[in-house]
Nucleic acid binder design. Structure first.
Lengths: 191, 191, 191, 191
DNA sequence: AATGAATGAGCCTTCATTCAT
DNA sequence: CATGAATGAAGGCTCATTCAT
């Protein structure tokens, strides 16, 4: 009979938002953004369509939050900004971590790759995406420079492209892609 | 006023289809599949909406044909099935040709990557995609085997992944990606 | 901590209702009935959406009460039922009072005019509106009769129409409408 | 079997647009803008909801066109811009014409009044409304000036207000409002 | 008395597809 | 072969109202 406290409301909100985002990520990743209607998502989440808009102002906002959450997670678990310098060991760690992160949230990265090529959706997140990726790239550049590369920019882009390609192939078919062996190969390549 | 022969009709028909496919590819690549309506495409192609259905039974059919055309082109211009064996020179040729093909039809490959992650669309073409790619993969496998690799499967997948990653990064931003230098680096890598 | 008496509760309740009605009037008048959601109104009033329904059983009920309040106010501050007869001085007073009332609650009259043409809303209040206006009309009729008019009904309707028109133009643009001068003109007209 | 000619299409379009506008005017006038859904209108017009958007890009566009049509009609049938000067006879004609126009399209004027107080809707047409009304007002001003009025601006505003009030009362209840007698009274008033 | 999460009906709009001509 | 009017299902979204707490 006593009304809910503010904390209770907050808790409900957080839980429900998380639920919706999980369901939506699942659906976006498996069916794509356009084939995952708000109706489908809400049904899967066991809530009414209308309630979706209590938590997200729009479908765009929903995917944006999902993508941003993933980016934040990425930056958080894998913050390279210790001193801004990569030692050889750290470079290996970099590769290992990348694969670990990839494996820990396959669906997210599937979704991430899927939107890179959907101009309408990509526009929503490209600013933040760039902002997130730039520091990584800088450190890589610096790494190849110190390793004595004459074309560190090229080397860095080739390396990141390779990582992209590996990631892409992995998330498309995680069951059959030999991610661990590939990782070892890459590490050996740069030793 | 001699009546046109059946071949002439067929030719006209094919030309019109080609025109439509070009326009559609352009739009699909720049706006995405879902944001490119039949209405928009037909207007750009200078024909009526109804006529579209005279040439393609559905929007799915349209994108399917576009993708298939691209695959056929790929197989045609770059047929590795001479003897099914890659020499070292041929492997380099393989890389060079891949890049050339990529550069020759950036929009197509953009579209191709975009649908890989759109399950609904990908389902339409995945059979043919697999069928097209398998022979390439087999030859690569053989190549790494003959080169004395202990893990030719891994090597082959890493190589194709790298090519994928490079391609992906190139088509996303062709202006700024140093495709030629990257290509040289890859060639050196496998020498 | 003596428990509040029932009257005190009632008083608090009425104050809250008045607050809500003020906020709602403001919003209805500025944005229109349909563009003023219960959500907006309650937020502006500083209470929860749910509580609104403790005071008003529906949105319709809310506007109804607002309109009725205005009518009651009108009848109260400007009760012509002294003896049911208008002298010449009283007729002038009638005009003066009309303008004064108009000026004292522009927003209300704006709202009032706005609903006259919204059948769905008007239906809610038309009975009371008629009931309120009839006595005024009767007295006016009587006034023109005593002034020797051969068509007192016509005269009365023309007069009220004119007052309506003036009111309408005033509330639409109070800043620029020369209400005082117009009032003087009308008074002179009937002298 | 032969396709329709361009003229035939044009004819269909014009007829259907007119049909929709008629139905919509009817409904807007009787139920108000917000209570007349596209769904209702299309049903009443005997067409599918989707087709509405073949003819009008939005509901706003629909009401805008209806209102603009009415304004154009008004300006057309009653163009005061002969020499920009009103003689006494012309002033009477002005009044007569106003009433005639009012009577000839009651629903339209009902709608017109209804939107004046719906800010959201009014915004759509206020520019054109102003543009349409200004010349009339100027001529009136000039008329009262030439009649020797010391306050032509006031006189003009009072006159137009009166006409507004009369119009308003008439369109609200055309059956019972004695429009013809009122008109005679107004004419006598300014003689 | 008070909260805001939750519902569900309905709104405007889009679009692949069909069809009469 | 060619047109574009017409359909209908579905989509994103809003909002008055209810309800558990």
């Amino acid at each position: 009979m006593t009304p809910r406290t503010e904390e209770q409301f907050e808790e409900i909100r957080e839980e429900k938002k998380a639920l919706i985002k999980n369901v939506a990520l699942e659906l976006f990743a498996s069916d794509g953004y356009y084939d995952s209607s708000i109706s489908k998502i809400s049904k899967r989440a066991g809530i009414s369509k209308g309630l979706m808009y209590n938590y997200f102002t729009s479908k765009e906002e929903l995917i944006k939050e999902i993508i941003f959450d993933g980016m934040d997670e990425f930056v958080k678990v894998f913050d390279p900004n210790k001193d801004g310098v990569l030692t050889d060991e750290e470079f290996i760690y970099f590769i290992e971590e990348s694969v670990r992160i990839l494996k820990s949230n396959i669906k997210y990265w599937r979704l991430y790759f899927s939107i890179i090529f959907q101009p309408t959706v990509m526009k929503l997140v490209e600013d933040k995406s760039l902002e997130m990726m730039t520091p990584f790239y800088k450190i890589l550049l610096d790494f190849f420079q110190r390793k004595g590369s004459k074309t560190p920019g090229i080397d860095a882009r080739l390396f990141t492209s390779m990582m992209d390609g590996v990631s892409l192939n992995y998330v498309v078919d995680p069951e059959n892609f030999p991610i661990e062996e590939i990782k070892q190969n890459i590490i050996n390549m740069y030793k």
